[in-house]
Design a protein around this nucleic acid. Structure first.
Lengths: 223, 223
DNA sequence: AATTACTGTTACATATTGTTAAAAATAGTT
DNA sequence: AACTATTTTTAACAATATGTAACAGTAATT
């Protein structure tokens, strides 16, 4: 079940949406007011937020803004009755990921929600990562290149996943270590370098993939 | 300029869209037919694809499918005249990232495109700098001259980038140091001069590039 | 011209990273 | 428990990046 936060003041509409989504794979928390909704966000950490623009108390834009101050990942989908494009523009500027004009079909809403959740990192337990010409099956810890399949160890797999999910960004050593060796609090050794070396050789067949070092900072996977 | 591929068979609509987008920051390639558009995709590697559903030759769904067989990253936005939600469902299943119903406002289209491009990995429109006869891949930290490719270190790359982005302007020492050595707060040494010396030798093949010193002030890249 | 301040260049010292092999730890099996 | 296979860490050495020092060269100032 995927936790979903719905903030919508029209009681009936809210109920219908909530009901409909519950019957698929979502666990819906429904709030009628901006303040309550915002509080619930930080409490429940939903995978996605469905947010009405016009709300009593705190309007949808303000709620989105508050959310984005502390969370840049969770997708937000706006529901809007207004038709002005400026609204849409400001919604996107506030970090909205999509919007839907009322009236909308429930089918359409579901499609959008699925799309957003699927590509959001809430699903970072995504099983298959398509890394250049490689396919990483993070569940089975397999790395496939064309017909060849390599068995990865747990940490090898975690490291590749971590770098790929942050591709084209510099990841500093500490953050990588935190992510891949979460329990070793006094990790001082050079295992990371050894693992980097190893996964470089795994990934060497696709020339468009490279892991570069930023001296005294960390690593960056480029693809 | 961000490369954008538009595949739309209605000539006039296509022209209007292309025109409008060109005036912002997009470099639009417009194709009227699925087959041509698909070919163009692999040739031009656009940052985003705008794809009409109904097309002569290969329809939009098939084009998307073919694209997704080899590329899972580039965002695809569908334009559809049909209203059936099933269409939308199948579009998303094929890997579409968004869709827009005709008729739509150009403003809205732009908003959507911006949102998609921004969160896609193609933010690297600054990736390649064309410095005289050299090409700097600032992501991979490579400097290419004709067939030769040099691996740059992180700071070498930053320095070249910094000077090139401010070409023909005098940059004073402190500003350069701030940009390239952001953490070293008590950097007093002469590394900058040494690095300048080094990148001068890297860039020596193209006589039209020079880095001159402005005594007691800083450096200026002339090109 | 002599002095001074700054820059160019080279060589070297040091710190960080790359790579390989072996040791140690862990998990799986008999 | 003993043995085996696998994973992870450590150790050692090689390669590279960066900073420092030294000295040569150049421009400005006296």
């Amino acid at each position: 079940m995927i936790p979903l936060l719905l903030i919508e003041d029209e009681k009936d509409l809210g109920l219908i949406i909530a009901d409909n989504l519950r019957s698929s794979e979502y666990e819906v928390s429904h709030y009628l007011d901006g303040h309550d909704g915002l509080k619930a966000f930080f409490l429940k950490k939903p995978a996605i937020v469905i947010l009405d623009v016009m709300l009593p108390g705190l309007d949808g834009f303000k709620v989105a803004q508050k959310i984005r101050e502390r969370d840049r990942e969770t997708p937000i989908l706006f529901l809007t009755a207004r038709t002005h494009t400026e609204d849409v523009v400001s919604a996107f500027e506030l970090g909205a990921n999509d919007y839907l004009r009322k009236p909308f079909s429930l089918e359409e809403l579901k499609v959008r929600i699925n799309a957003l959740v699927q590509r959001s990192q809430w699903q970072s337990n995504k099983r298959f990562l398509y890394i250049g010409e490689y396919v990483l099956d993070s569940m089975r810890q397999h790395l496939k290149y064309k017909e060849d399949e390599i068995n990865l160890s747990f940490r090898e797999c975690e490291l590749i996943k971590m770098l790929y999910e942050n591709k084209n960004k510099v990841m500093n050593r500490q953050d990588i270590i935190q992510a891949v060796w979460p329990h070793d609090r006094f990790f001082t050794g050079r295992s990371l370098d050894v693992f980097i070396s190893r996964i470089r050789t795994y990934l060497q067949h696709d020339k468009s993939i490279s892991i570069i070092n930023i001296r005294a900072v960390g690593y960056k996977m480029i693809i």
